[in-house]
Write a protein that binds this DNA or RNA. Structure first.
Lengths: 215, 215
DNA sequence: AGCAATATTGCCAAGTCGGCAAACTTATGC
DNA sequence: GCATAAGTTTGCCGACTTGGCAATATTGCT
């Protein structure tokens, strides 16, 4: 029953992850609630039941803690892509992988109201200027993983080939742009159509003849 | 004789820019020289002959000051692109615009040894982890300009069309990736071939059949 | 010259950041 | 199971950052 990813983690590692998650979550929750300026590290530490000094063992800045969620989301894109059938065309697989991470949770059980908070949080992360740098840094970090997955997928000789590197960078760029747009133009609908359009532009090499047709 | 961009700047604005440039330059110079950790704001202010408090009127953090040069470089890419003949194919024009900003100065007069320092500085900016976030932020800021220029060039209906936004993001991404590569694999040669290869990938929509042919 | 607008600076309180060492918890070998 | 190693949490604390406020100085304009 135990997943591969869980067998070799002792109590130590498990606790560590819990603490990290608690801190990151507390940071995000408090900042969304009270506003970036009105939250200090001590508040976050208190909310996570650890000392202020411990906070700093996990994150070097408040911004990093808040952006940690985003980092994991982008890493999940890479994981999702890795899990997809190799038969799927690259850009389709990528679109789906990204989309999966930017649709509301749609949980079966608990928090239904969380659909709203989810959006509220994503918006905060990508909107608050004080963490913009950290968010971009997180995306860049995840991009390394992404490049590896893409390399595997297209069977690049080495991970160091230009192709996967550039492709991964482009994916990061497209996701950033599209999510930005989606948040601006009323995120009421799904993000998928926008993603499709954007990746279509990329896949066709930005051929200028048709910008709005194709549905 | 006076350029449009220069006529409406009085002594005030001129001094302001000088101060800003002096601070940014001092910050970069000192950090490259002594290492990021061993430079404090006061040092930079002193080197630029202003009070520490004034430093903070121009830049909110040390990182921002150091990255200011990068921001301007990326803005110059947009300017250069704007200045290029509309007849030039988009990706060619972009490649050239970028290349122009990442070739050693090749100044006619003074500092010849500056060619080395130039590289040393670019490397520092793009390598030092502590400013990575700021650098990405600067690129993102310049990207807004870039999107406008691209919109003009391809004659997009509105700047808010998806096309120019995505294209600009892709350019930023490609530049980041390529410069990174260039710095890693020995920046002895020109960056242009790498740029060409990368933009070729983009222009062809990452068609997988040929990754290394085409010269 | 004289007034308005803007820039520089000092003062200073609140907050961040990270090194160090003591106290505590988990892992491992025997 | 117990001792010891390895890793984590915490308090203490000094160096540094960050930004508000108000006094002073400089520039722009008539």
């Amino acid at each position: 029953m135990s997943t591969n990813a869980e067998i070799d983690v002792g109590l130590r590692e498990r606790k560590r992850r819990e603490t990290r998650a608690a801190l990151s979550l507390a940071a995000l929750r408090l900042c969304v609630q009270r506003g970036w300026e009105n939250v200090i590290v001590d508040d976050i530490a208190a909310a996570a039941n650890v000392s202020p000094r411990t906070f700093r063992n996990y994150f070097s800045t408040k911004a990093e803690a808040v952006a940690a969620g985003h980092l994991e989301r982008m890493l999940r894109v890479a994981d999702e892509l890795r899990a997809r059938p190799a038969s799927e065309p690259l850009w389709t697989a990528i679109t789906n992988s990204v989309a999966a991470q930017f649709e509301p949770p749609a949980q079966k059980s608990e928090a239904l109201l969380d659909a709203n908070r989810w959006l509220e949080r994503i918006r905060f992360i990508l909107t608050e200027p004080s963490i913009h740098g950290e968010v971009l840094k997180a995306s860049a970090a995840a991009q390394v993983e992404l490049a590896e997955v893409i390399a595997e997928r297209v069977g690049a000789r080495r991970v160091k080939d230009l192709y996967p590197q550039v492709a991964a960078a482009v994916v990061t760029a497209v996701v950033g742009t599209v999510v930005d747009r989606w948040l601006r133009d009323g995120p009421s609908g799904s993000i998928v159509p926008l993603l499709r359009k954007a990746f279509e532009l990329v896949a066709t090499g930005f051929s200028e003849n048709k910008t709005k047709t194709s549905k």
